[in-house]
Design a protein around this nucleic acid. Structure first.
Lengths: 227, 227
DNA sequence: ATATCATTCAAACGTTCGTTTGAAAATGAG
DNA sequence: CTCATTTTCAAACGAACGTTTGAATGATAT
C-alpha cells in the first residue's frame, strides 16, 4: 500500500472518530447509534465495522487518539520540571500544573474537537460500563504512578493514605470541571465566556487543589459552628 | 381505595425502584433494560409502565425518592446550625459538613440501598442525557441557593465569582467521591474497608474542601480585582 | 490493459428495545 | 355472594439496534 492510498482511509477514519467524539459526548456510548454516527460522519453504515471492527473498538479508538498523547504530554511536562529542578523536590504547585495543564490545553482546542473530548473524558471517569473504566484506568496508570511519586517527594510529611485520598479528590475536581456544563450556571449566573479560558481556569484550579492538598490533617482541625 | 389496598401496590413499586436503582448504577440508564429490571424485581414486564407510565418516568421516580429527602435533610441541617449560631455567620467548616453530611449518611446506608443510590447520583451529575441533568438541577436548585447565601455570609471578603467556582470544585470533589469506585485503588492499593466509613470520609472531605474554599486568590485574579 | 487489493455501498440479518393489549387474577365494598 | 376496581400476566407490537454480506467501485502495480 502506497502513501497516497492511506490518505482517503485516514480521512474516513478521522471523520468517524470526530463524529463519534461529538455524539458519544452528547448522547453517551449506548445512546449514540451507529446510524446517527455514520450519518454525521457522512460515511456508509458499514464503515465503522470495516475500519474499526466494532462499536466497542471504536470507543476504544476514540479514547486512544487523545488520551495517549495527553498522558505523554503530562509525563513530558513532569520530566521537564524535574530537569530544571536539578534533583530538588518539585513544589506541589508545579506538579499540579503539570498534571492539569494537559487536560486544560485540550479544553482550549475548540476547533480540533479537544474541548468536546475533554467533556467526554470527564464523563467517562464515572461511566457505568466496566470495560470503559478499565480502559481509562489502564491508560492513566503509568502517569498516575509517576505523579504519585512526585507528590510523595514533594510532601514527605504527608501520610501516604492521606495523599492517595487527596489525589483522588483532586482528580474528582478536575474530572467534574471537564465534564460539567451546567453547575456553574446553576449556582449563579456565571459568565460562560471565560469558562474555557484555560489560563484563568488553570490558576483557579491550581489554587483550589494546592490548598486542599496541603490542608491540615483532619484530626488537627477543630470544629466550630459559628464565627 | 382503602389503606390495605395500598400496601401491595407500594411493595411492587418499591421492588421496582430498588431494582432500578441497582441496575441503573451498574449499567446506566440506557444499558439497563426493562426486561433485566423487571426480572430482578420479580414483577411482570408490564408493571413498570403500569405503575410509573414509562421508563423515563421511572428514572425520575428513582431520583425523587431519595433526592427530595436528602436535600430536605441538608436544608434542615443548615437551619439547625443557624439556630445555634444565633445570628452570627456560620463557619465554612460547619456549612461544608451540613452540605456533604446528607450525601455521606447515604453512603453508610448499605442495607437500604442508599449507598447504591449515592453512586448512581455521583454519575448522574455528568449524565449525557439533558433531561436527567435538568431534573437533578431542579431538585438541587433551592438547596444550592441557600448554601450559597450561607457561604457568602461566612466569607464576605471572597469575590462572588470565585465563590461560585469554588463551590463548583467542591461539588465536583463530592460527586466524584460518591461515584468513583476504582480510582483510589488505581492510585494505590487502598484499604477499601474504610472507604465507606462516613465519619472518616467526612473529616477528610471537609479538610480538603475547607482548605480549597479558603485558598489564597490566584495571582492573576488579584491583579484583575485590583485593576 | 489487466489483475489485485482496499474501500464503499445498499440491503438484509437476527436480536433486543420500550410499549401496548386484552384477558385473567386478585382485591375491596355493598 | 356480587359487582366494580385494581393489579398482574403472557403475548405481541413496530422500531431501532449492531453487525454481516456480496456486489460495485476505486486505486495501484505489473
Amino acid at each position: 500500500m502506497s502513501v497516497r492510498a492511506l490518505k482517503p482511509v485516514k480521512e474516513t477514519q478521522t471523520r468517524i472518530l470526530d463524529a463519534a467524539e461529538e455524539l458519544f459526548m452528547q448522547h453517551g456510548f449506548e445512546g449514540a447509534s451507529m446510524r446517527m454516527l455514520t450519518a454525521m460522519a457522512g460515511v456508509n453504515l458499514a464503515a465503522v465495522n470495516y475500519h474499526f471492527g466494532s462499536k466497542d473498538a471504536l470507543i476504544e479508538a476514540v479514547f486512544r487518539r487523545r488520551l495517549d498523547p495527553m498522558n505523554a504530554e503530562r509525563l513530558a511536562a513532569l520530566e521537564r520540571l524535574a530537569q530544571v529542578a536539578e534533583g530538588k523536590a518539585l513544589t506541589p504547585d508545579a506538579i499540579i500544573r503539570a498534571f492539569i495543564g494537559a487536560s486544560l490545553h485540550m479544553i482550549e482546542d475548540t476547533r480540533g474537537g479537544g474541548r468536546t473530548f475533554s467533556r467526554l473524558l470527564g464523563r467517562a471517569y464515572t461511566e457505568p460500563a466496566k470495560s470503559i473504566r478499565q480502559l481509562i484506568g489502564q491508560m492513566y496508570a503509568p502517569a498516575m504512578e509517576r505523579f504519585k511519586a512526585a507528590f510523595v517527594r514533594a510532601l514527605p510529611e504527608l501520610p501516604k493514605d492521606e495523599l492517595v485520598w487527596r489525589m483522588h479528590f483532586m482528580f474528582g475536581t478536575l474530572a467534574y470541571t471537564l465534564a460539567a456544563t451546567d453547575t456553574v450556571q446553576l449556582i449563579a449566573g456565571a459568565k460562560p465566556e471565560d469558562r474555557y479560558d484555560a489560563r484563568v481556569l488553570e490558576d483557579r484550579l491550581t489554587a483550589f487543589m494546592r490548598a486542599g492538598l496541603l490542608a491540615p490533617l483532619p484530626g488537627a482541625l477543630q470544629v466550630r459552628i459559628a464565627a
